[in-house]
Design a protein around this nucleic acid. Structure first.
Lengths: 259, 259
DNA sequence: TCAAAAGTGTTCAATGTACACCCATGC
DNA sequence: GCATGGGTGTACATTGAACACTTTTGA
């Protein structure tokens, strides 16, 4: 991490380029080997965790600001990204949160000179989707570390970031029938078990294997490949890939895969 | 309308109480006698139209700010209100819009001193639902008039307010199965025809009368009353009302009434 | 040989969907 | 008597949902 004083000076001098009182927070969902995770960071070894976020330069649209946060943190471009909700309670002020003392302990007493620390922030929430194996998590400017957490086992968050995650997950659940979520979370080639596990994780319920497979085949959104995946200890499952045309069409009209 | 100069001075002096660069826009849907309308206003006789909006006082949550806009404009309290999207393109600047000259012609050259006129605004969109007969449309501080427009016959809007309406309507369509939309748009007592017409308007398609009625009755979300409605020239239809408990339950789990 | 995951069909129930005529009323 | 919207039932097709055993493989 660069020297804290010069970092702070740089941030202070940049503030005028950004819209005040507005931030972006991204819930970056990553899926791999049947685990659904989100990317979180923290500013020092003992602090609470936060979602990757950023600010909005005065000359760029909020969607682009969110894209920049996503690209910086994942190293990837063109990921699926969707605005889902804006958070604007009047107590969204870092300076007043119980976590502030440890922030000040890390960054020094001048930290509160930053507007986004001392003033109320309205945060625009986005969620993103990716196969997390492709990602090399990059800590933000102020971060001590940045890593994936299984959504079943999340750490303690600062401010309202837990609630932001919850709303993002709620949107994910709702959108699973109407957005290309499978396509964006899975690798290009995947097994039926992987796909079903993804649906079960997002919908938080068990699905019937035979009905699930049958429905997928009837709709024709995935294609069986000749390759099999080696998983060791068991019968080798066939790999599949999405038929993008059929899939996008199905999703546009809403598909119901869960029983 | 009060004197424009003193109005402007008052607004300028108030700006510090509000979050800069953030506004609220409300798409207020009103339904009555089989017409779905939204409330619009304009600042003078020849200007483009805008959606009712406002700003966020530094000490109140965004949801409450939206509630205040809604109450001021409709005179009603406790209406259904839902945040649906935030609009943040970098060209959301009144000062730069082709409509600005007519605003300046109305309010004078000092009008651009207002931050929300000259600076980029990020606007949080909410939609509200009401039976519009209960509403006495109240113009905002700067408005020349304020009235209902059928959504099939909307006027020319300023800035991106047309797009805001479109997104609100899209949300309304999506939410019709999962939010108590019928209950909030219809009067307490209504006919089956009224309810069906509402669904047809929102979903933009014709529904089969017998199947619609049958489904409603099977689910039990509405109750038949002994009263009939006088509609003249025709057989008098029975009035119905929602069985609130059943309805809220059905909506929570998602009801599918459209075929 | 055991454990773990893959793969595969049938039956029954529930729901969706198509469809048409008479009724009541006021003009 | 006619125009207008209200009110009502049946039959068929589609989809949903429940259900269990064999195969493959590595440890």
């Amino acid at each position: 991490m660069p020297d804290k004083k010069s970092l702070l000076d740089k941030m202070l001098s940049m503030e005028d380029n950004f819209l005040p009182n507005i931030s972006i927070d991204c819930v970056i969902f990553g899926y791999h080997e049947r685990e659904l995770k989100i990317l979180c960071s923290r500013t020092h070894k003992t602090s609470g965790w936060i979602l990757p976020g950023g600010f909005v330069r005065k000359d760029i649209p909020i969607d682009d600001a969110a894209k920049q946060v996503l690209t910086m943190r994942t190293g990837l471009d063109g990921l699926f990204l969707k605005q889902f909700m804006t958070f604007g309670n009047s107590d969204r002020i870092w300076r007043n949160s119980p976590f502030y003392p440890e922030l000040e302990a890390t960054f020094g007493p001048d930290f509160k000179k930053l507007k986004w620390i001392s003033e109320r922030m309205v945060s625009i929430g986005y969620y993103a989707l990716t196969d997390f194996i492709k990602v090399i998590p990059a800590p933000g400017l102020l971060d001590y570390e940045c890593k994936w957490f299984n959504i079943k086992n999340l750490p303690v968050f600062m401010l309202d970031h837990k609630q932001i995650f919850k709303e993002a997950f709620k949107s994910l659940k709702l959108h699973i029938h109407t957005e290309p979520i499978g396509l964006n979370l899975l690798p290009q080639k995947f097994t039926l078990g992987d796909l079903q596990a993804l649906y079960e994780t997002i919908l938080e319920k068990k699905l019937d294997q035979r009905n699930f497979t049958k429905k997928l085949m009837t709709i024709g959104v995935i294609q069986k490949l000749q390759e099999k995946k080696f998983i060791g200890g068991h019968r080798s499952p066939y790999l599949f890939q999405f038929d993008k045309k059929t899939y996008f069409n199905a999703v546009k009209n809403g598909i119901e895969l869960a029983f």
